[in-house]
Amino acid sequence: MKKEYAKEYSFVAVLDFTGNQIAVFFPDLDEALSQADSVEEALRRANEVLKLTIESRIMDEEDIPAATPLDKVELREGQRTIVATCTLNEKIKYDKKTLTIPHDLNVAAEAAGLNFSQVLQNALRDKLAEVE
Rank of each mutant, 00 (worst) to 15 (best):
R57F: 14
L33A: 04
L52M: 15
Q79S: 09
Y9F: 02
L105V: 05
I101M: 06
V49H: 08
I54Y: 00
D95A: 14
M59A: 15
L88G: 03
K7C: 07
M59Q: 13
V24C: 12
E55M: 12
L120M: 14
R45A: 11
I92T: 15
V83C: 04
N47Q: 13
D30L: 12
P65C: 09
N47M: 00
N20I: 06
D60G: 05
E40F: 06
V14W: 08
D28G: 13
D104E: 14
Q21G: 01
L75E: 03
A112R: 10
I54D: 00
N89F: 04
L75M: 05
N20G: 14
H103G: 07
K97S: 02
L50T: 08
A46E: 02
V39A: 09
Q35F: 11
Q79V: 09
K91F: 04
V14Q: 07
E90P: 06
S56L: 07
D16Y: 01
T100G: 03
A42W: 06
S38T: 10
G78D: 05
E31N: 15
G78E: 07
K51G: 06
L88S: 04
P102N: 07
F17H: 12
C86M: 01
D95I: 14
S56C: 11
S10I: 05
E48M: 13
D37L: 15
Q79R: 11
I58T: 02
E77P: 01
T81Q: 13
T85E: 12
A111Q: 08
V49S: 11
E110R: 00
E8V: 02
E41D: 11
A23Y: 12
I22Q: 07
G19P: 04
L52D: 12
D28Y: 14
L43S: 09
N115L: 06
V83K: 05
L15Y: 05
L88M: 07
D60Y: 03
F25L: 13
Y94G: 03
A123I: 06
T53C: 15
E40N: 15
A6F: 02
V49L: 06
R45C: 10
L99M: 05
T81A: 12
F11Q: 04
R125D: 01
A36Y: 00
K91D: 08
A109C: 12
H103Q: 08
L43V: 13
R76A: 13
A23T: 09
